[in-house]
C-alpha cells in the first residue's frame, strides 16, 4: 500500500480518501496471506553443517529472543489481558519485554490483540510496514485468529492473517496470562530457528 505523494488529501476529503483505501483493501484481502517460511528439522541440519553461519545465527537469534519490544497497538478486550500480563503478577519484564515502545520504528513485535475491523485494517497494515525489519506478529485471541465471536459481522476482518503475516496464534477469548506467556515462549522458539541466510526468502 504505497502512498503516492500527490494523492495526499486536503483536510475535508481525508475521510473519503481513507474510505477508498478501506474499500479496496477489503476487496483485495479475502484469503489469508501465506504463512512465513520456517526451517523444518532436516533443513536445519543441512544448514548447521556451515559452522560460521550457525554461531552467528545463534548469537543474533539469542539477542532477538532476549529483547522483544512490543509496539503498543491494542484494539480490544485482549488489551487488558496483555496489560495484566505486563503487571506485577505475571511480569513479562522478566523476559525483557516491558519496554513498551510506542513508535513502531523501534519495536519488533506487533501484539495483534483484539478484534480488527475493516476501518482499522489499513492502519494495522501501515503500522506493520513501519516496523523495522526483523519483526514478528502475534495474533492474540479468537478475534485476532479468525474474527472470533464477531466472524459473521459486516465490519470485522476474519483474522489478522488477511492483512499481515502472523507468526504465532494464541487462542482464547481473552487468552489467560499464562496462555499468553506460553504463546510468547513458542514465539521465542520460532525465532531460535530462524537464520540470517533465509531472511528474505
Amino acid at each position: 500500500m504505497e502512498i503516492n505523494p500527490q494523492m495526499i488529501p486536503s483536510l475535508d476529503d481525508a475521510d473519503a480518501y481513507e474510505g477508498n483505501i478501506v474499500e479496496d483493501l477489503r476487496r483485495s484481502s479475502l484469503e489469508p496471506l501465506p504463512e512465513k517460511v520456517i526451517l523444518s528439522e532436516e533443513e536445519l541440519k543441512e544448514l548447521n553443517r556451515n559452522i560460521i553461519v550457525t554461531t552467528l545465527d545463534d548469537a543474533i537469534n539469542w539477542a532477538h529472543k532476549a529483547s522483544l519490544w512490543p509496539v503498543t497497538c491494542f484494539t480490544a478486550c485482549c488489551t487488558f489481558e496483555f496489560i495484566a500480563t505486563s503487571m506485577a503478577r505475571f511480569d513479562i519484564a522478566r523476559f525483557g519485554m516491558e519496554v513498551l515502545r510506542p513508535s513502531p520504528r523501534q519495536a519488533d513485535l506487533l501484539m495483534a490483540a483484539g478484534t480488527l475491523s475493516w476501518k482499522m485494517a489499513p492502519q494495522i497494515k501501515r503500522i506493520y510496514e513501519q516496523m523495522a525489519e526483523p519483526k514478528w506478529v502475534v495474533a492474540m485471541g479468537a478475534c485476532a485468529i479468525s474474527g472470533g465471536i464477531f466472524q459473521d459481522s459486516y465490519a470485522v476482518v476474519p483474522g489478522y492473517n488477511h492483512i499481515i503475516p502472523v507468526d504465532v496464534y494464541i487462542p482464547g477469548c481473552p487468552p489467560r496470562p499464562e496462555t499468553l506467556l506460553y504463546g510468547l515462549e513458542q514465539l521465542r522458539n520460532k525465532i531460535g530457528h530462524e537464520s540470517i541466510r533465509l531472511e528474505n526468502k
Binding site: C77, M120, S153
Partner: peptide, 25 residues
C-alpha cells in the same frame, strides 16, 4: 469506528440466550 463490530446487527441474528456473551464484549 475503528472497533465497530456491528454488535447490534449480530444480536438480531442470535437467539436471546446467545446474545448474553455478545453483551459481555
Amino acid at each position: 469506528g475503528y472497533l465497530h463490530r456491528g454488535v447490534e446487527k449480530l444480536m438480531e441474528m442470535r437467539t436471546y440466550k446467545q446474545g448474553i456473551p455478545m453483551t459481555d464484549r
